[in-house]
Simulated scan of single mutants.
Amino acid sequence: MGVDVDAFVSDGFVVLRGAFDAATAAACREVIWAELSGQGIRRDDRRTWTRPVVWADCRDAAPMVAAAASPALLEACDLLIGPSRWTAPVPAVGGPVRFPAEVYPGEVGYHIEGNRWIGEEYWTDVRSRGRGLTAFFLYSDVGPDDAPTRLIAGSHLFIPPILAAAGETGMAGSGAADRLRPSVLCRTTVHCTGRAGDIYLCHPFMVHTATWPHRGRGPRMISQPGIAVPDGFAIDGSDPSPVAAAIVRGLNGMN
């Protein structure tokens, strides 16, 4: 499974189709349903699907560990960050489960992910110390009606100057996205759709948002772990990783 590095640098993401197999994806869904049953949500009773989004805390369940150990994912992390630079293993987690609903689910808005908590906000800095990539694992099939995550292609190139101006401390991810020119949000959008077992691998500065409503037939099950890089990236041109190359490209206004 090849990774188009040039596309990653310019667009900010790559898609690993079939990164883990259908049986592993099905086992992940079983774990999620078991966790949801503890919250009174039953697979066979749609009357219990009363909330538009519910978080399933399935950390380190065996099927999630297997999905996170996908050879295609590990090879892509080595390629985009650099071997031995990121913290293994990739976190094995559950995530938000979105149920069919027309009501506003809350927490919808463009942002980038952070790498550390300051107060109640998730902060990051121009070197992205702490986060090397953001992954979106599809545990269920996700179509355009299933409230897929929306990415702004190329938006990661507009974030570095904003973070650089904030200095070593950086700023909250939502604050960085708020400082973008409105025209950036009018760029091409890509929705994280696909078959169970696909993984979207995104630059840490990718601007994205949840979407609503969910007009599909069943719940959408994903996770969104971050791949950690404790020391972050050099931004003086000396760092050979594609993640760093994109940051430098953005700092140089090549967007």
Rank of each mutant, 00 (worst) to 15 (best):
G226F: 10
G130T: 02
P91E: 07
D4Q: 05
V93E: 15
R181I: 10
N255S: 15
W123H: 12
R215Q: 13
A68D: 02
P105T: 10
I235M: 09
Q39I: 07
E168H: 11
D4W: 10
A153L: 08
S84P: 08
L251Q: 06
L180K: 02
A56V: 10
I112R: 00
D141C: 01
R150I: 13
S37C: 11
G167K: 04
V108M: 11
V9M: 07
A27E: 13
G119L: 05
V243G: 07
L80R: 03
C192G: 07
D4M: 06
P105H: 12
G170Y: 04
V65M: 14
G143E: 12
W212R: 04
A196V: 00
A34Q: 15
I199P: 02
T50I: 14
F136K: 11
R51K: 15
A246M: 05
A61N: 03
G132F: 01
R187L: 11
R195T: 13
V229H: 01
R17W: 04
I32P: 03
W212I: 00
W55E: 15
P144H: 09
G130Y: 04
A68L: 06
H111D: 04
G94C: 10
R129M: 11
P89D: 10
D11L: 11
G109P: 08
A68V: 00
I112C: 09
Y110Q: 08
F20N: 00
R127Y: 09
I235S: 10
C192N: 09
G82Q: 04
P219H: 05
R127P: 01
A7P: 03
I222K: 06
A34E: 14
C28L: 02
E75R: 13
L185A: 10
A165R: 14
R187V: 02
E35K: 12
G175D: 11
A19M: 02
A76E: 06
G216P: 09
G95P: 05
F158N: 02
L133M: 09
R181L: 15
G253C: 09
G94D: 06
V243N: 08
A92H: 01
L74T: 07
P230E: 10
W49Q: 03
T209P: 11
T124K: 03
F20A: 08
V14M: 06
D146V: 00
N255F: 12
P83R: 15
G232L: 01
L157N: 05
I159V: 12
I235V: 15
A34W: 09
T209K: 13
L251W: 07
L138S: 01
L201F: 09
A244D: 08
A76M: 02
F158Q: 05
I152D: 07
T149G: 05
I247R: 00
Y200Q: 01
F233H: 00
F13R: 01
V9F: 08
R195W: 12
G197F: 03
I32R: 02
F136I: 14
A72T: 06
S183H: 13
T189H: 14
P225H: 02
A61L: 02
T188I: 08
P161R: 00
R46Q: 12
P213I: 06
D44M: 00
A153F: 10
A62G: 03
R43K: 15
W117G: 01
D178R: 15
